[in-house]
């Protein structure tokens, strides 16, 4: 197990070097769909982080008794359970947010970030690195979603977190930014920007 990254490395890697959105390009469906405003993005990332950490904990604890050829079944079962809990929580205590995110909360079940973390990290490493990995990837996902949501909400609605930033007196809202094309445009531009920063760093 010495060749596996430590807990701190796992945590850091999830945020920048292996960022789920900009480096691994995973979980694109929610990334494009729920980034019309910042609150939605934060709730989505929080729900995903909860599921990531819980699934990593369960898989890491059970990693020695999981039969390799049945592991995907165990992952899916675990993820589905925690997603259902997250969905019920939102419906019970944040009904408006639940209505806004609609089917994208149940769809966390098929989010490949989580199943890939179970496979890459939690099924090979002990509890502490697995938890650190869950939080790291979750924060990375939060960063990815929020960076897109800030641009889209600002340009599309002139608001941030629901507060008016760009007054209607001098700003015309670009409706396209809150429509699907706005998601692709923003993601493409931001990904190009982060890749450009990455290549600049490598040159130095």
């Amino acid at each position: 197990m010495n060749d596996q990254p430590t807990a701190l490395e796992r945590f850091w890697r999830g945020i920048i070097p292996e960022n789920p959105t900009y480096r691994q390009v995973l979980g694109m469906c929610p990334t494009l769909a729920v980034t019309t405003n910042v609150q939605g993005a934060i709730t989505m990332a929080a729900a995903t982080t909860f599921v990531l950490v819980c699934a990593n904990i369960m898989v890491s604890l059970l990693r020695k008794i999981i039969k390799p050829h049945l592991r995907i079944l165990v992952f899916t079962l675990t993820i589905a359970t925690f997603v259902t809990i997250a969905d019920y929580f939102l419906q019970a205590f944040m009904p408006e947010m639940s209505a806004q995110l609609g089917p994208y909360i149940p769809l966390i079940i098929v989010n490949c970030i989580i199943i890939s973390r179970c496979e890459v990290c939690a099924s090979k490493q002990s509890l502490v690195p697995a938890i650190a990995d869950g939080f790291g990837q979750g924060l990375g996902f939060l960063l990815g979603l929020c960076s897109i949501a800030v641009v889209r909400e600002l340009l599309g609605s002139g608001t941030l977190m629901g507060y008016t930033v760009l007054s209607e007196n001098f700003w015309v809202n670009c409706g396209i930014m809150i429509l699907p094309p706005g998601a692709f445009l923003t993601l493409g531009c931001l990904m190009a920007f982060f890749n450009w920063i990455g290549s600049k760093k490598q040159e130095n």
Binding site: L62, I65, K67, L70, L73, V74, L77, T81, T84, I85
Partner: peptide, 15 residues
């Protein structure tokens, strides 16, 4: 599949 059956029962109880 004993582990999966056991987990399914456990998760059902939680849900």
């Amino acid at each position: 599949a004993w582990l999966i059956l056991l987990m399914a029962a456990l998760y059902s109880a939680v849900l």
